[in-house]
Write a protein that binds this DNA or RNA. Structure first.
Lengths: 255, 255
DNA sequence: GTGAGCTTACTGGTCAGGCCAGTGATAACG
DNA sequence: CGTTATCACTGGCCTGACCAGTAAGCTCAC
C-alpha cells in the first residue's frame, strides 16, 4: 500500500443534501435568523438550479429537523424557526425505544440526572428559582385530594424547576425525555398503584426533603435524597435481579 | 365552555408524514428489522396510494433520521439501518452551535456522565471489562510517542470501555455524543494545545488514577477523579465567569 | 376617511409521467 | 463449473400541471 496520499471514503451526495447543507449553514452562521423567511419553493428552484421536488425534499428534511416550517398558502415563504429541543427529544426517545433500553437502565439514568440536577440546583439556584420550586410543592400538597392526575403534573413541574435551576439545559432535556419514557412504560400500572393519598403524601414528604437540601445549599444531600426517593418509587418496576446498579447509585454517597 | 368533550389542537398532517409515521412505527415495533429492505419506491407508491414525490419526501426524512438508506440502483430497495447515535449527535451538536448550550454546559454534562460511568463501573465491572480498560491505558502509554492523534483515539477507547462497564447504554451513548460534540467544537485548538508529550503523560496519569479507583471498587473516588480530570483538561475552553457550575461538580464530593 | 368584503396573485401540497445512470440477479457463455 | 454480459428494475432528478389555501390589496358602501 502506498504511503503517500491518504484517500477518504467518498459517498455520493444527493442534490437535496447540498441544499440542506447550504440552508443549514446559513442558519447556523446567523445569516438567517428565526422569524425570517426563506424564498418560496419556486424561487429556491431558480436560486439552487434544482427542480421543485428536489427543493421540496430538502425542505422536508429541514422541517423534520425543526429548522423551518412551511405553511400552505403562506405568501411569505417557509419560516425559520427558533431553536427548540424537539429534535433532540425525538432522537433521544428513539434511542430509548429502539435500543429497547431496559427499565433498570432508564431509572438508573434518571437517578443520575435528577441527582445531579438537585446537586447543582442546591449550589446555583437563585431565590426566584427556589420559590418556583416551593410553589410546585405547594401545588402538589393541594393536589393530593384532587387525585393522581393533578399530583403527577405538579410532581413533574417540581423536577422541571429543579432542572432549570441546575442551569444546564442538557440535563433539563435529557431528564425530560427519560422521565417521559419511564412514565410511558408504566403509566398503566402507576395510575392505580400510586393513586392513594398515603403514597402521595409520602412522595410529597420526599420532595420536601429534597427542597430543603436545595434551600440549605447541601448539594450532596440533595443528590442523595433525590436518588433514594426515585429508587424507592420505581424499584418495584424493576426485576429484582436487575436492581444492583440502582442500589449502587443509592449507596454511593453514603459510606 | 362545555365540560363534555375535550378537543385537542389539530394541525394539518402532510401525506408524507403519514408515511413516515407508518414506516417509523413498523421499525419501532420490530416488524422491520435492521438489514431488511423496504419495497421499492414505485411499490411503496402503490401500497400507500401516494405519488412518488410524496413517497420520496417520506424516505428522505427517514434517511436524514438515520432509519433507512437508499442506494441508487439497488434492486432490493431501501435498507433498514441498525440504530446509530448519529442522529442524536447531530441534534446535540446543533443544540450547541445555536449557542443555546454553552461550552460550560457541555463539559458540565460530560463531567456528570463520565463521573457516573466511572462510579458505576467501579462497582459493576467484570474482570474482563477491567482488563479491557487496562489494555486501552497501555495503548495510550505507547501512543504518547506517536502523537496526539493516536493518543486521543486510545483516550476515547478508555472512556468507552468505562461506559460499557457501567452497564448503562444511555450513559454510553450520551457520553459518546457529548464527547463528540465537545471535540467537534475544539478540535482545531486542541490539536495544537495538547500535542505535547508532557501533557499526554499528565493525562495518562489521570487515567491511571481513575482506573485504579475502578479496580479497587471505590466508586466515589473514581467519580471524583474523573470529574476533576475533565475539569482540568477542559476548563481552559470555558470563559472564567462560567466555570462556577463546573467547580461545583468538582468540589461536590470533597467536603 | 374608514372599515368590511371581495379579488387576485401567489403559496405550498400533490400528482402523473418521463429520462438517466446505476445495480445486481440471472442467463448465456467459455 | 466459474465468468461474463445482459437486462429488468432501482433510485435520482426533471418537467409541467392542478388544487386549496393565504393574505395583500382593491373595491365599495358607509
Amino acid at each position: 500500500m502506498s504511503d503517500g496520499a491518504q484517500f477518504r471514503q467518498v459517498s455520493p451526495v444527493r442534490l437535496y443534501q447540498r441544499i440542506v447543507e447550504q440552508i443549514e449553514q446559513a442558519i447556523v452562521r446567523g445569516d438567517l435568523k428565526p422569524g425570517q423567511r426563506l424564498p418560496s419553493e419556486r424561487e429556491l428552484v431558480t436560486q439552487f438550479g434544482a427542480s421543485r421536488p428536489t427543493v421540496r425534499e430538502a425542505l422536508r428534511v429541514l422541517e423534520s429537523d425543526g429548522l423551518v416550517r412551511s405553511r400552505p398558502g403562506d405568501p411569505n415563504g417557509p419560516e425559520i424557526l427558533p431553536y427548540s429541543s424537539a429534535g433532540l427529544t425525538k432522537q433521544m426517545t428513539r434511542l430509548v425505544q429502539f435500543d429497547n433500553v431496559s427499565m433498570a437502565e432508564l431509572i438508573s439514568f434518571r437517578m443520575i440526572l435528577d441527582g445531579s440536577a438537585s446537586s447543582l440546583a442546591a449550589r446555583l439556584r437563585s431565590e426566584e428559582e427556589l420559590s418556583a420550586m416551593e410553589r410546585t410543592i405547594a401545588v402538589m400538597s393541594e393536589a393530593i385530594e384532587e387525585g393522581y392526575e393533578e399530583f403527577s403534573k405538579a410532581d413533574v413541574a417540581f423536577h422541571e424547576a429543579v432542572a432549570v435551576a441546575s442551569r444546564n439545559s442538557l440535563i433539563e432535556v435529557c431528564n425530560q425525555v427519560v422521565r417521559g419514557a419511564v412514565l410511558a412504560l408504566i403509566s398503566d400500572k402507576v395510575a392505580h398503584a400510586h393513586n392513594s393519598a398515603a403514597l402521595m403524601r409520602e412522595s410529597l414528604r420526599h420532595h420536601q426533603e429534597v427542597l430543603e437540601a436545595i434551600r440549605t445549599g447541601d448539594g450532596l444531600a440533595a443528590a442523595r435524597i433525590s436518588r433514594r426517593k426515585l429508587y424507592e418509587y420505581y424499584a418495584g418496576y424493576v426485576p429484582e435481579n436487575e436492581r444492583g446498579p440502582l442500589l449502587a447509585l443509592v449507596e454511593d454517597e453514603e459510606s
